[in-house]
Computed example of a mutant assay.
Amino acid sequence: MTLKYVWLDVDPRNASQGHDDATALMMACQLENIKLLGVSSVHGNASADCTAKNTARCLHAFAASSDVLVYRGASKPLLRPTKHDPEIHGEDGLGGVVGLPSADSPEVQARFARNDDGSFIHAIEGMATSIKDVWHNGTGRQVSVVSSGPMTNIALFISVYPDLLEAVEQFVFMGGGVGLGNRSAVAEFNIMCDPEAAQIVLDAPVKTVMIPINVTHTAIVTPVIHSRLRSPHLPLLEWRTLSSLISFFAGTYKSTFGFDQGPPLHDALTIAYVSHPELFQVQRYRVDVELHGKHTAGETVIDIWNYRICDDSWGSTGKNCLVVQGGSGVAQFFELLLDCVSRCDGVSPLNVHRI
């Protein structure tokens, strides 16, 4: 199994740094073929300060390697006012969670990447350094850059370090929809937060993979899956932490969107895709973001009928994006997830206090 080098950019709001963000983080820490290089936080479901702290809390709880640190990123979109989503994820982005350590605890504070003078190392600096070290002037390996929130940090990296784009294997992002929105009639939250950043990523000369809400809305934590998270064999990490996150997310998704069978785990599908792309069907399209429409800003426009003349390149002139269509991989995804949770439960420092 080929080892995949990954940089993860998150906005801990739901279960996977927030809610489903935390699940993505946990899987990135525990999948055997994923080498997590670092994690950058970004504004999104909660403020930039909250997302950074939540990311550090999750890295500690999920037993990330000690060299995996949090790099604070953008606090606002490139051009637009900041949006948060407390309605879905809680005021601090980890609504309803129990069992995680305090953000001020020494073990959590140790997770922040700092300069020698104690100042924080910025997301794009950390990203560039890690990618450069792994790429090693072309003699090393490329890195998959994965985004589960607004893509402000990724756009800044592309703009500031264009010479490192050859070291990026792919940009994989959870966001957008095919004729579907979740925070407006046609726009998905991550893209709507910073549509200009998303367009910059789509225009970069690097393979881009979009996992839209059409697909993530099929990855439902049903009562059957949730009951497995409540297994008596995994009483602390699964029940107290992941289960409490998912329970909160289930309530908000039911009240806001009418999901009766359970909440979707959007963001974790990004890590599952990088680890096991064979589980997913994809189709290559030209994808752009609507930037100016009064009612459609943030909409991902997928050229399904090939109206736009494109070449074979990635980026601004080509069919620039692999759009995940779904497939038979949801059941396998949850088996991957539960296996990661089981593995994590055996090494999590939270379980030191298990009764």
Rank of each mutant, 00 (worst) to 15 (best):
S348V: 06
P235M: 03
H226W: 06
I309L: 07
D339Y: 05
Y285S: 04
C321D: 06
G293W: 00
K294R: 10
Y285K: 15
W314L: 10
P263T: 15
L237T: 03
V274A: 13
D339K: 06
P223F: 13
F334T: 05
G251E: 14
S227N: 05
D260P: 02
R240K: 15
V324P: 05
H295E: 10
Q281Y: 12
Q325H: 11
V323N: 02
Q283L: 15
G326W: 08
L265N: 08
Q283E: 15
Y253C: 02
T317I: 11
I302W: 11
C321Q: 13
L229C: 04
H266Y: 15
L234P: 02
F248A: 12
S342W: 14
Q325S: 14
H226L: 06
A297T: 09
H295V: 13
A268P: 03
E290D: 11
V301L: 06
P223C: 10
Y307T: 15
I302N: 07
D339L: 06
L279T: 12
T222W: 14
F249Q: 12
T296K: 06
D345A: 01
L322T: 10
L265S: 03
F280A: 01
G251I: 09
P232L: 11
V287Y: 02
E335P: 03
R230P: 02
S247T: 13
V282L: 03
T270H: 00
W305F: 13
V324N: 05
S328K: 01
V221F: 13
L336A: 04
A272W: 15
C340L: 04
D339V: 05
V301D: 00
T270Q: 03
A250E: 13
E335Y: 08
E238G: 12
I309H: 10
L322V: 07
L279W: 11
S243P: 14
I271H: 11
T256N: 00
F280S: 01
V301Y: 06
Q332C: 04
W305D: 14
L234R: 01
P232E: 05
Y307M: 08
P264D: 00
P232G: 03
D339T: 05
L337P: 00
W239F: 02
R343D: 12
L269G: 07
F334I: 08
A250N: 13
P223S: 12
L234A: 03
F334Q: 11
R343N: 08
